[in-house]
Amino acid sequence: MLLIECPWCGQCEQSEFHYGGEAHLTRATPESDNTELTGFLFLRSNVRGDTAERWFHAAGCRRWFNARRNTVDDRFICTYKPGQNAPQETTDA
């Protein structure tokens, strides 16, 4: 079970959170073409390595936030609030 740093509550057990999938997807609007729609609905980067993803602190502050995590070693690089861009600095890999 992972230990996750909620930007508002600090470190909490993963069981308090819901996973929200890939972060920074652009929602399709009625103006989007089919490619954009399919990309939004279904296509995922599904990165092996450093990825940006969404979490929801369901049993805590009930807020959504983003995280950068390595999907191979499950190390959290950072967490950040929605609307922010993923911090780009790299830590030791």
Binding site: H18, G20, R27, F56, A58, R63, W64, P82, G83
Partner: peptide, 13 residues
């Protein structure tokens, strides 16, 4: 409820 929170917080803040 969770879905609505998602839209409220992340899509239409």
């Amino acid at each position: 409820y969770q879905l609505l929170e998602d839209y409220r917080q992340t899509e239409w803040p």
